[in-house]
Nucleic acid binder design. Structure first.
Lengths: 197, 197
DNA sequence: GAGGCTACCAAACAAGTGTTTGCTATGGCA
DNA sequence: TGCCATAGCAAACACTTGTTTGGTAGCCTC
């Protein structure tokens, strides 16, 4: 009965925009950007196609919003993982990998949008915008790798892309049950960690 | 002046079909399956859209033909690489990886189609057909990995997906010049090869 | 030189696309 | 009570899509 309550969302409000984002993420992940129509997305939340344009000014605009939310999830997960990790660099990167995998594999539909190979199907003119978001995220890993006591001849750039490849590829084969994200992270880091280091 | 020459391809013949395949591979790789129209492909070889249906009975049919050709290139490359390699299992898998990368990175547009993350954008009903082709190819690598003297605790399945991930991810970052496929293969295998094995 | 096959053109079809426009019911605020 | 922003409906617009259909020039064979 509070009279000062911000009474927005009477019949919809901000939550409707969120519902559209969720529906878009789900359908983009399932059928791709081109394979999903404005009518599909609007219909999923019981809305007519034209009404969606009250919340987003274009289909691309909607995609960018979904993508941003996806990247934000990854960043939040790794921030949290690193906050509760000791100083050992191998332990730190394993924790970061586990966090990355847990979002990638069990993080819902938003996470699937962020995959660069997925992004390739988007309109070309928006690639710079999207890639900038992702590059910033990858820099977290570059820092972690810089701190590793690797053999002198190891190329740290190739180390990074090798690790990232292994991690992101897991989207291709992962099925719930057999391995946990932690299992996979531990195994991958274990393989890359020379016994004598 | 040979009178017995197989005079096909007078105005087109089999070479026209091949030209369509090339154009389709190029445009699928560049703009995706949905992003490429029949009109684009036909136009690229100076043909009207309807005429394409003389050579292929549908757009999906065309895609399958391109995909098959892509897989065949990978198989031919690794067959050849393994034929000229000694018995050392590490050397063998490094050669296979280098062959895989050379096709993936410098093998033209056909190779890009084979990427599973790319395939995800295709019509769902054709995935079984395409995946069967690819699984057969991956089995070559499983055999090579089975022969490796890995540490007892190493999960060879995870080893395979880690390696495949690193290899295929290179499509995302590779630019001509800095590294050769052989460089990358050697570096990746070097990282995965424990010093004491 | 008549028939038939190859390879293609020309034109349309039905369906689906992203987007725009004009309008309207609802609730909060002065 | 009147006003105004919110949130959405209803209907269309202009365009692109994969595909089909009927026709036809050129070559090969008999």
């Amino acid at each position: 009965m509070a009279t000062t309550a911000p009474k927005l969302e009477a019949r919809g409000g901000e939550s409707r925009r969120e519902a559209l984002l969720d529906a878009a993420a789900e359908m983009f992940a399932a059928k791709g950007y081109d394979g999903t129509s404005i009518r599909d997305i609007a219909g999923a939340v019981g809305m007519l196609p034209g009404s969606l344009y009250y919340h987003f000014k274009s289909k691309e605009d909607l995609l960018i919003a979904v993508y941003r939310k996806g990247v934000a999830r990854f960043e939040a997960a790794i921030d949290q993982a690193l906050a509760s990790t000791g100083a050992d660099p191998w332990q730190a990167i394993e924790a970061a990998c586990a966090a990355h995998l847990s979002i990638l594999l069990d993080g819902g539909d938003y996470a699937r949008i962020v995959n660069p190979e997925f992004v390739r199907s988007f309109p070309a003119e928006m690639l710079p915008t999207l890639n900038a978001e992702r590059d910033r995220y990858e820099r977290h890993f570059e820092k972690l790798i810089a701190a590793l006591p690797l053999a002198a001849e190891t190329d740290r750039w190739l180390f990074k892309v090798a690790l990232f490849g292994s991690l992101n590829w897991s989207q291709t084969w992962y099925r719930k049950g057999r391995y946990t994200p932690q299992d996979i992270a531990a195994a991958f880091i274990g393989m890359l960690r020379k016994q004598d280091a």
